[in-house]
């Protein structure tokens, strides 16, 4: 095994990590905000709000992310109206297209996760808040959202990890994140196995760190679930 080559490859591939983290962080955070809105639309009980949100989730979860990326990157340019609009300087760039596709995609999955979290808040809590005279907005902000998000956190952690994996698809529209750099290296060196294994190791490390961070956040947010402190030794 050629350790020098592996080390060189690893360092070169690390150059793609900032872009990978950027794509993940921005799409996940914007997606989270949109997902809360869509989850509220789903739960509003108003069919005019519920059905569009349902349709959105159905379409974005039912089609492959790569199709969505191609639709935005290659597809939108078909229309002169879009090519002449103010959005074109952004939609022309693969970076913003990938960001948009990732955001819209994660929004759909996160909507269902957050909806599940909100539904898990016991009705008694909401009833009690109403009895105290809280307004709907205050109930949502103080009672429903904090508890709902806490329940949703483990599933949301999975979604964040799925998103770091999904950023690899941005390489297909020429973005040079880790997988993009890896493909370029392979076409230069023809050493596919070593290079792609190195890239895989980078994703594993990132996802390991993310899952540890989520576990830590879970423990912080749900101290009541932590193991009770060990009983002190009985006095002799």
């Amino acid at each position: 095994m050629d350790l020098v080559f592996l080390a060189d490859t690893f360092v070169t591939l690390l150059g793609g990590v900032p872009l990978l983290l950027q794509l993940t962080a921005i799409s996940v955070s914007v997606g989270a905000v949109l997902a809360v809105l869509l989850a509220l639309m789903r739960l509003s009980g108003n069919p005019l709000l519920d059905y569009p949100a349902r349709g959105y989730v159905f379409v974005f979860r039912g089609t492959p992310l790569l199709v969505q990326i191609f639709l935005i990157y290659y597809g939108l340019g078909q229309f002169p109206e879009i090519r002449q609009s103010v959005a074109w300087p952004f939609l022309r760039q693969p970076y913003w297209c990938a960001m948009l596709a990732l955001t819209l995609n994660t929004t759909a999955y996160a909507t269902e996760i957050i909806r599940g979290g909100i539904l898990s808040v016991p009705f008694g809590q909401i009833e009690a808040a109403r009895a105290c005279g809280m307004s709907r907005l205050l109930i949502f902000r103080r009672i429903i959202l904090p508890q709902g998000l806490r329940t949703a956190l483990p599933a949301y952690g999975n979604e964040i990890i799925l998103m770091t994996r999904a950023t690899a698809l941005a390489s297909v529209i020429t973005l040079m994140e880790v997988t993009g750099i890896a493909s370029k290296l392979v076409s230069e060196t023809f050493r596919a196995i070593e290079v792609f294994a190195c890239a895989g190791a980078i994703y594993l490390i990132i996802n390991f760190l993310i899952s540890r961070a989520i576990a830590l956040a879970e423990r912080r947010l749900s101290p009541q679930l932590a193991a009770p402190p060990a009983a002190p030794e009985p006095a002799r």
Binding site: R165, A166, T167, A168, I193, Y203
Partner: peptide, 23 residues
């Protein structure tokens, strides 16, 4: 299970296709 769920699917396809071809 941990490895296959942690690395991008695209990478696995590349690894098998290009790695397989080079082998």
């Amino acid at each position: 299970v941990t490895v296959l769920r942690g690395i991008p699917d695209l990478l696995v396809i590349y690894l098998l296709y290009f790695g397989g071809s080079s082998v």
